[in-house]
Amino acid sequence: MSTSHDGLCGIGELAERAGVTVKTVRFYSDNGLLPEASRSAGGHRRYGRDALDRLRLIRSLRALDLPLPAVRRVLDAEDGAGGVLEDVVAGQLRELGSRLTALRWREAALRLVQECPPGERADRLRLVGAVTAPPSTAPLARFWRGWLPSRMPARATAAFLEAAVPPPPDDPGPAQVLAFARLNDLVLRPCPGDEQPQPEAHRATGARGAAVLYAGLAEAYELAGAQLRQDRPPHPGEALDGFVAAYASAYGARDTPDFRRLLARQLAADPRIDRYWELVAEVITPPGGRTEPTPGSAHDWLLAALDAQTAAAAA
């Protein structure tokens, strides 16, 4: 790299060979990324034979927008930078993905405001302004944790939250942004009497029984969801049997015609959160896509099947 008798080169020569400014070389040196070999009698920086390759590597890493601490990790790696470089690049890709998702949410929110009627803009600004980009699902999870029976096993709670809390889409349309903002507003709104309505099953089965109940319901909802995707009307079958069996197991009862009639009446009287599930369907359904089943729509399908069955048996 240098024609100097000691094999070293000055900062100006190094900068010229690397195609950067002297200020850039000085910056990397001052931050410990490009060590100096020595100083001249006049106090000028001198660099060794490997400085040019190191500087070029620094430039390549910075061109990938890696922050200085990440660049330092790669340069200081003892294994030739292979494993460390892979980890650093993977981390940068995750961060970039999060930033891109945030930008897509902001773009969709701007389109939502731009395209809505002038009389609705103030309300939509209020709704989207209360949601981060990308949005957090923490308020939704808190809503359901307050609704579920206390002391319900953590694994059962986590499984329910996975089904009940929709993941925000990475590339949403304006309608999905609006639906999520409305969902966020819904769960943050105070409940009448400061207490969420509870279904009878929560009081009758307790925390352990509720865990059994929701495990069975998850399987029944999945089966009903397959029927919904095929546009099949509510009917008796495996999904309904699993639905009733979940309640029977939680209550310690037998699945009999009398039990089914009592269950149909109880479920008809239970509090409903229809608006929540309507909004969830809007969040998870891509623009122009087919409406995806939710636990709420699966529950309605199963309840309709149960009502039809008990009505037919009574007739």
Rank of each mutant, 00 (worst) to 15 (best):
10 G>N: 09
10 G>Y: 04
21 T>R: 11
25 V>F: 09
30 D>E: 00
38 S>N: 12
38 S>L: 03
45 R>M: 08
45 R>V: 05
48 G>V: 00
52 L>Y: 09
54 R>F: 12
62 R>W: 07
66 L>N: 07
73 R>G: 10
74 V>S: 07
75 L>F: 11
77 A>I: 02
80 G>L: 02
85 L>P: 06
89 V>E: 05
91 G>A: 10
96 L>R: 13
97 G>W: 09
97 G>F: 07
97 G>K: 03
101 T>F: 08
108 A>V: 00
120 E>M: 12
120 E>R: 15
122 A>C: 08
137 T>N: 01
138 A>Y: 09
141 A>L: 11
142 R>E: 10
160 F>W: 15
163 A>S: 11
167 P>N: 05
170 D>H: 11
174 P>D: 01
191 C>W: 12
191 C>S: 09
197 P>G: 05
204 A>K: 15
212 V>M: 14
213 L>S: 15
216 G>K: 03
220 A>L: 06
220 A>K: 02
227 Q>G: 11
228 L>I: 14
229 R>S: 07
231 D>C: 15
235 H>E: 13
236 P>G: 11
237 G>W: 06
241 D>S: 15
244 V>L: 06
247 Y>L: 12
251 Y>P: 13
251 Y>N: 13
257 P>M: 10
264 A>W: 04
273 I>Q: 13
276 Y>H: 14
283 V>A: 05
289 G>Q: 01
289 G>K: 07
292 E>R: 02
294 T>S: 02
296 G>R: 05
302 L>T: 04
307 D>C: 12
311 A>R: 09
314 A>L: 14
